[in-house]
């Protein structure tokens, strides 16, 4: 089905949605920042430094989510040899990598006042650093070879292998003793963040997701233009 989508038609759709997504993003991030920085209460223990959470946690979630998505799509690329899917994974990766780095940096900034250290080689932090390296390998796989087909193959394998790391990141705080605290937002068990703090967390997550979508659309747009310029009528 994807193979018959013409780049020209896709480009038109993307150009329209891009503006739309950008406007919604601006609205959501403004509400999110006001909530996170001004309206939400300070924490009983950490006081104002808890506000770092509203950037740190959404960034980590989004980077994990994007990597998982890339890995699943990569499986599709390798099995079905779908060209369009490889353009999608390639376009998804930059924002995932950026959010991964943001999660690491804000975590470090948060760690100093609360834990008393910038960095700890515990299971959560180390596995998150490993994810950043997987992202880096994924991004670099297009640079190390000029052969497009080869790059798609290498990057897809990197994503699938890196997927093993994702549950390790998620459950590291439960499986091993770590300096990092266990997760506060849970689907199956009780959530241990007060509702007044959960709200900005949710809004910021939505804002970061929209930002990723926006960057994805811009990048995907560029990839489609490249294809169009090569004179290919369809993907």
């Amino acid at each position: 089905m994807f193979n018959y989508l013409k780049p020209n038609n896709l480009l038109k759709i993307i150009n329209k949605t891009q503006k739309f997504v950008f406007i919604i993003f601006l609205v959501i991030i403004s509400i999110g920042l006001v909530e996170a920085l001004i309206l939400s209460p300070e924490d009983y223990k950490q006081s104002d430094s808890v506000r770092i959470m509203y950037v740190h946690v959404p960034a980590a979630w989004i980077s994990l989510g994007i990597f998982s998505l890339i890995a699943v799509l990569s499986f599709g690329i390798l099995v079905f040899k779908n060209k369009n899917l490889s353009l999608i994974t390639k376009s998804l990766s930059p924002s995932g990598f950026v959010f991964n780095v943001i999660a690491l940096v804000t975590g470090s900034i948060w760690g100093k006042p609360t834990w008393g250290t910038w960095w700890a080689w515990d299971a959560r932090i180390t596995s998150m650093l490993l994810l950043a390296f997987f992202y880096l390998m994924f991004l670099l796989s297009w640079r190390v070879t000029d052969d497009e087909k080869k790059a798609v193959k290498i990057s897809s394998y990197i994503a699938i292998i890196g997927l093993i790391n994702v549950p390790i990141i998620k459950f590291s705080v439960e499986w091993w003793s770590t300096l990092h605290q266990p997760s506060s937002v849970n689907i199956f068990t009780e959530t241990s963040i007060h509702a007044s703090m959960l709200l900005p967390l949710g809004i910021m997550t939505a804002a970061f997701a929209l930002f990723s979508l926006l960057i994805f659309l811009m990048k995907y747009n560029t990839e489609l233009i490249k294809i169009k310029n090569k004179g290919l009528d369809r993907l």
Partner: peptide
């Protein structure tokens, strides 16, 4: 030689505490 604080997963405003 070094003390690190390990905090828990609970976040709430002071009034709630």
């Amino acid at each position: 030689v070094k003390i690190l604080a390990k905090h828990d997963e609970n976040y709430m405003p002071p009034e709630v505490e």
